[in-house]
Every structure is written in C-alpha cells, then in structure tokens.
C-alpha cells in the first residue's frame, strides 16, 4: 500500500505540473489575458482599457505573486473569473461537464466494445479475404479525422435519414450518433494495439501448449491469448481517455453540443485564460485518476504484479 501512496503523491505532482505549466504558458509567455479582452476595442481607448483590465486581473503584480495567488486559489477551487462570462471559471466549466462526461463515457464504452470485438473477430476469421478486409479497418479508423466522421454521420443521420436534429440534438439519438463519431478513432487505436498484441500472444509457447491440448480456436483466442494481449491496452487506458477528452472538442463542435469541448474552443478563441487553465488542470486530474484506478485494478488482472511483497 505504501507503493500506492507513492503513486498518489506522484499523481498530485503531475496535476501540479500541468497547472504550473499551463499557468506560465497562458499568463506569462505571450501578451496577457487582458489583451484578449481588449482585442475588439479601437484606438486610444485600448491603452487605457488594457491598463484597467490588467489591474483588475492583477496582472501588474510580479509573476511569482501572481503564481502563488493562482496556486492557492486553485487549491480552493478558485481559478479566477471567466473573462467573458464574468463568473468563476470553475463554475462555467463544471456546468458543461455532465454533457461531455456522458458523451465521453459512452464513446469510451463503444470504443472498447468495438475495438475488442473487432480484434477477436479478426483472429477467428478463417476466410482469407474477409480477414484481410477486417484487418484493414483499424488503420483506416485511426486515419479518419474525428470531425470528418462526425460530418459524415451528421449528413447521413440528420439530413438523409432525419433520425436526429442537425443542430444540438438533446435526445438519446443525438448522443448516440455523437458518441459513435467519438468512438471511431479510439476503437481503431484500441483494436490496432490489441490486434498486434493478440498476434504476438498467439505465437507464444503457452499458446502452442494450449493448441496441443486440443483447445478450439475460440478458446485459444478468448481464454488464453486475449487476457495477455489486453494488459497493455488496459495500461494505456489513461491515454485512451485523453484521446476521448480531446475528441469531444471536435465532436461537440460538429454536433453543436454545449459541452466542455466547445467551451474550451470558445475560450481559446477569446483567450479566456482562466477557463483554459481549468480545462488543462481538470484534464490532468482525469488522467491521473484513471491511471490510479488502472494501477489499483492491474494486480487483479496480472498476479505477477503485486503491491506488497
């Protein structure tokens, strides 16, 4: 368990690092947040407006003071005011979060189910041509830009079949289609990794043994090879979730869903730094949490790994 505590500490460092990196990137490197707000203003007002804004945002103070304030604020859940919405950035973020969470979770579920099924079916397919066809699917899936997949689905399901509304469908259908768009790339990458691992696992000596015990192809693939092949996929779940979170940005834009992804794009466009800072920090938190969960579950899957002993 001591080792797990270490992981926890390590996770905290990662989140802190992400926050710090993002803070310096957003507040120190370029102009500053005030510039974003005054971008629209003309002429002589700008200077004055800028100074006023800087003072308001506390940007005229030394960097380390700003950083310290931001850090202590963040620890209390205060990432500053959203420049546009004029209310706490965290609130803005949290409001949009459920929308994105259901999309990402459903997308992840679909990606795992589709990816694993495809890989197993590939290994169980005897016909050479069918197999070749199936094998070509995962690389194609990862080569499809998520926004393009979204547009195609939108064209088909909204404009051809009229199953969903083209703009911001709040129903189950809309959610489902959007999560399919999200799941294609993730499922493709899961399947790609899993297919490669399965192939490697299937050449292992223990598979040779199982085959000589008279096991069927299905038993060999599902009972003996799949679990071994799936371990690296489980390990990379944190990254897959990251891909999902990133993917929501595009999917939400295409399907005009008002989630975190859209919020971030708007924030980036408007240089609404506090919101971007929240988004980066929470993404890191999600990654760390997913990895902690995976770490905790891993010894159950692979008895060779143990926390103690």
């Amino acid at each position: 368990m001591a080792r797990y505590g270490l992981r926890l500490l390590y996770g905290v460092i990662v989140v802190w690092g992400a926050f710090t990196g993002a803070f310096f990137l957003l507040y120190v490197v370029p102009g500053d947040a005030a510039g974003g707000l005054t971008a629209g203003a003309d002429g002589g007002d700008v200077k004055h407006l800028l100074a006023e804004q800087r003072e308001l945002l506390g940007l005229d103070r030394p960097v380390y003071v700003q950083y310290w304030d931001a850090l202590t604020g963040a620890l209390h859940g205060d990432f500053g005011q959203s420049i546009y919405q004029r209310r706490p950035a965290v609130d803005v973020y949290v409001e949009s979060f459920p929308e994105t969470l259901q999309l990402a979770l459903l997308g992840l579920l679909l990606a795992v189910v589709l990816g694993v099924t495809l890989s197993v079916v590939i290994e169980l397919t005897h016909w050479k041509w069918a197999r070749e066809l199936l094998i070509s699917l995962p690389p194609i899936a990862v080569s499809l830009p998520p926004f393009l997949v979204g547009l195609v689905l939108l064209q088909v399901f909204a404009f051809q079949l009229h199953w969903i509304d083209a703009v911001s469908d709040r129903g189950l259908g809309g959610l489902l289609v959007a999560s399919v768009a999200l799941a294609v790339a993730g499922g493709g990458s899961i399947s790609q990794l899993l297919t490669a691992n399965l192939r490697a696992a299937l050449t292992s000596p223990y598979i040779e043994t199982a085959r000589n015990w008279g096991l069927s192809r299905f038993d060999i693939v599902v009972r003996h090879a799949l679990k071994n092949a799936a371990l690296p996929v489980v390990t990379s779940l944190g990254t897959t979730v990251g891909v999902m979170v990133g993917g929501t940005v595009l999917t939400e834009t295409v399907f005009s869903r008002l989630g975190v992804g859209r919020l971030v794009v708007d924030a980036v466009n408007g240089r609404d730094m506090p919101v971007v800072l929240v988004a980066v920090t929470i993404s890191a938190v999600i990654f760390v949490v997913v990895n902690l969960v995976v770490d905790a579950l891993y010894p159950l899957l692979d008895k060779r790994i143990r926390w103690e002993g």
């Binding site: 990251g242 979170v245 990133g246 595009l250 971030v264 993404s283 890191a284 990654f287």
Partner: peptide, 9 residues
C-alpha cells in the same frame, strides 16, 4: 506531465 494532458487540449 506533458503526456497527462490530452494532446488536443
């Protein structure tokens, strides 16, 4: 730390 945040973000 860099890898902890999704690349698009």
């Amino acid at each position: 730390i860099m890898l902890a945040v999704p690349s698009l973000i």
